[in-house]
Amino acid sequence: MSTLLQVESLGVRYGSIPAVRDITFYVDAGEAVCFVGPNGAGKSTTVLTVAGLLAPHTGHIRFDGRAIDGTSAEDIAQLGVSLVPEGRRIFSRLTVGENLKLAKSLRPGSAAATRLLDRVLELFPILRERYDGYAGLLSGGEQQQLAIARALLTQPRLLIVDEPSLGLAPKYVDLVFAAFAHLRAENMTLLIVEQSIRRALAFADRVYLLRSGAIVRHGRAADLRGDADFESAYFGGAATP
C-alpha cells in the first residue's frame, strides 16, 4: 500500500507557545485512521497544519510524495486534501445548494458534475430537501452532513474530518459514521478526529493517541481493542508509549 500522507517531526506554535511538538504519523492510501485524545491535545492544530491553514514551525509534510509544508491552503485543496474543520463552518448566509456549488471542482452543469452531486446527495438525502434553504437554518446534524458533502464535492483523495460527532445527537453520529463506512468501501482515504475511543477503535484501521501535543500511543485498532493500557493512556494514567 502506498503512503498518501506522511508527516514527520511536526511542530506547530501559536505565537511562541508550542501546541504540537514533534509529531510523526502517516496515512496509507485507502486507510481509515483516527486521531483520539483529550481536549487541547493538538489534534485540530495538526490537521489544520496539514490542510495549510497553519504554518509548521518544524518538520515536514508530504502528500503523495510531494512536500506541502509551505503550500497555501487553496493549493493543498486543489491537490486533493479536503478538511472538514471542527465546528463544521458551513456558510450560513449561503443556501445549501450554494455551499455545495462552491466546492464543485468540476465544470458547473457538466454531466460529470451532476453525477458527482447526485452521488453525494444520495449519501445525505436531507440536503436535497433543504437545497434551496439557507444553510444557517439547518440543525447541527444537518450542517455536519453539509460540511462533509461539500468536502466530498472537491473530489478529495484524502478526507480529513475534525470531530464530526461533536455536539451531535446519537442518530446523526450514526448517520455520519455510516457515510464514512460507505466512503471507505469506495476506497476513500480517511483521517478522522474522534473524541470517543470506543468509536474510533470500532471504525479505524489504525489509531493515534495524542496528548499535550505529542503522539503517546499508536497501533492497529484491532490490536488496541482489548488493551486496557490504551484507555488509561487516554486519561493520563500511562503517558509513555
Binding site: A77, P85, L94, L102, A103
Partner: peptide, 16 residues
C-alpha cells in the same frame, strides 16, 4: 460572498 463570511473555509475548498 463565501470568502466574506469565512475566508479560510473558502480556501479549504480551493477558492483562490
Amino acid at each position: 460572498r463565501a470568502a466574506s463570511e469565512d475566508f479560510s473555509m473558502a480556501k479549504l475548498l480551493g477558492v483562490r
